[in-house]
Design a protein around this nucleic acid. Structure first.
Length: 260
DNA sequence: ATGGTAGTTTAACTA
């Protein structure tokens, strides 16, 4: 089963790019972030015609997440538990073939310090709490999406330049570590131990031609899924195309249950 | 000294 995450930065602007990528790479499950539209405005038909079921958790103008699946989706749940006053659409879960898919768009948190950074840290605490519940349930799961955190120095083209940035703050990195140390496996790093694995290049300052990239999109696998990890990939050429998102797709292939 | 780009809600926000 091939599962991908892709921060598309606007479903309307990315429609041709996304359709093309789905047809070429045929993921079983695709988790999208920053759809930037309401549920009722989502262009469902184009994707349903490719054989996908859609779960949408949208928001006007900002944020918004979605899960596409070629297989039946069950128990769709919108929003990250733990704060009933949180109105931002950043989290969506669904079960596909017995795997709990947790699609997330973690808050950016800039500027530091400030309300937005406080919201980011609180959101990460809620994500850790959710991971603990899922681990206790023993349901195989993965948390995947735009984490807006550098896990290691190697995940940033110039760590010194980001010293004051929310993506690099010790408090945010400590929470990401805490999530990982619950027993989750960083799929891309597991399969590619050395070297940068950038997933994002800013639209500004010639970041793409200079390869000034960041690794902020992750697939974090529960122990049962880590045992089933076959392959991972980053569809880097997507960044060089016309009307590209500033992120590229990141994916993993999981062995089917019972297969060798 | 502070810009540069892109997407959305076409003005101002978010990243």
């Amino acid at each position: 089963m091939k599962i991908a995450t892709f921060n598309i930065n606007g479903i309307k602007a990315r429609l041709p790019r996304l359709l093309e990528w789905l047809e070429e790479t045929k993921p079983d499950v695709a988790c999208l972030q920053e759809i930037k539209c309401l549920d009722e405005n989502f262009p469902r038909l184009e994707f349903e015609a490719l054989g996908y079921q859609l779960a949408i958790h949208g928001q006007k103008g900002f944020n918004g997440v979605a899960i596409f699946s070629r297989h039946e989706m069950q128990d769709i749940e919108r929003g990250l538990p733990g704060d009933e006053n949180d109105i931002q659409s950043r989290y969506l879960e669904a079960t596909v073939k017995g795997v709990r898919i947790c699609c997330l768009y973690l808050p950016n948190g800039n500027p530091v310090p400030g309300e937005k950074f406080d919201y980011k840290l609180a959101w990460m605490d809620r994500l850790i709490a959710r991971a603990k519940i899922l681990l206790a349930s023993e349901v195989p799961f993965l948390m995947l999406g735009d984490f807006n955190v550098f896990q290691e120095e190697i995940d940033c083209y110039d760590p010194a330049a980001f010293a004051g940035d929310a993506l690099m703050q010790p408090d945010a990195r400590a929470r990401f570590r805490a999530l990982k140390y619950l027993g989750l496996t960083d799929a891309s790093r597991q399969k590619t131990p050395g070297g940068p694995l950038y997933t994002f290049w800013d639209y500004q300052r010639g970041a793409w031609p200079r390869d000034n990239g960041l690794r902020i999109d992750f697939l974090m696998l529960s122990p049962a899924l880590a045992d089933r990890l076959v392959e991972t990939g980053i569809d880097r050429p997507e960044r060089g195309k016309e009307k590209a998102s500033d992120h590229v797709p990141v994916w993993c292939e999981l062995r089917e249950v019972g297969a060798n």
